[in-house]
Design a binder for these strands. Structure first.
Length: 288
DNA sequence: AAGACGTGGGT
DNA sequence: TACCCAAGTCT
């Protein structure tokens, strides 16, 4: 046991948010839907959409019975709509290959579309109580500071980082699961990227970064997402037209949504290629 | 393996 | 106002 364990676990007992995908009554499917939605998206924006999804599609089979376009539409403005497509595809695979039950094994989860290392570990852990290293951006930041003494982790997960997390993972399954969610929560609420609330941190006295005087980040420049005028913005505009329409829309409606013709045409093609849009027989466009 | 991929709230 | 960045995945 590390000296970090008890204070972090105790802190979580007192400060954990009550979220619908936590708690004993939450289904594995509820956890899985939440993990997809939470990929790069804040909790506050996920909450209402998650509730709508679970009400409308309480099981993987319910979602799989719908068209993928309905999933994209119901995804709303969560962003990265390919996640909706992948979640729909994952639900379909769960019905076809797993009897409609969300798999409990990391390997089975990892094989599903849209599920990478983090999400597989998270679902196995939070939905099924399995013991896995759960390394998300929050956990990585907490360990970078508390253990490694630096403000931010590297751009991608390193072997050393994984070793630290593995060494810190409690031996028994229930405690390992509690530990993982507790460290994540600590990173989300206290050990935040900007303006960490060290005064509220249960392990401030053990934190290597704080002990070193909180040295400023000195690694390579962290990537900043460009946005205005990008294909991403264009794609978002085009898809929003379809999301907000009843059925199919004529090409002219899409043309009106983005001025640059070359870029618009390119983005339309990429949306088609991604399966986020389809062309109808009449030559108009619709959600799949 | 660096870059693409949405969106909106916080500072 | 800009810029930061939020429970990643895929190619």
């Amino acid at each position: 046991m590390s000296a970090l364990h008890d204070p972090v676990l105790a802190w979580y007992d007192d400060h954990a948010r009550e979220l619908p995908w936590r708690g004993v009554q939450a289904s594995a499917w509820s956890v899985m839907v939440s993990e997809f939605m939470l990929q790069q998206t804040p909790v506050a924006r996920v909450l209402p959409v998650h509730e709508q999804w679970l009400t409308r599609w309480p099981t993987p089979a319910d979602l799989a019975a719908e068209s993928s376009g309905e999933a994209v539409r119901a995804w709303g403005r969560l962003g990265y709509p390919r996640r909706a497509l992948r979640l729909h595809a994952a639900a379909t695979a769960i019905v076809a290959e797993h009897g409609g039950e969300v798999p409990a094994s990391y390997d089975d989860l990892r094989a599903l579309p849209g599920i990478g290392d983090y999400t597989a570990a998270a679902i196995a852990t939070f939905a099924h109580g399995r013991r896995h290293v759960v390394l998300d951006t929050n956990v990585r930041r907490v360990f970078a500071r508390a253990v490694s003494g630096v403000e931010f982790p590297a751009a991608s997960v390193t072997r050393a980082e994984r070793d630290v997390a593995q060494d810190l993972l409690p031996e028994d399954e229930p405690t390992a699961a509690s530990w993982s969610v507790a460290v994540m929560e600590l990173g989300a609420l206290v050990c935040t990227a900007a303006n960490p609330r060290c005064g509220d941190c249960p392990v401030a006295g053990l934190c290597a970064w704080r002990a070193a005087g909180k040295p400023a980040y000195d690694g390579p420049p962290r990537k900043v997402q460009t946005w205005a005028g990008t294909d991403r913005q264009c794609r978002g505009r085009l898809l929003a037209v379809l999301r907000d329409a009843e059925g199919s829309v004529p090409r002219a409606r899409l043309d009106a949504a983005w001025a640059d013709e070359a870029q618009r045409t390119r983005c339309l093609a990429s949306l088609l290629a991604d399966g986020l849009l389809v062309r109808t027989d009449a030559g108009s466009y619709a959600l799949p």
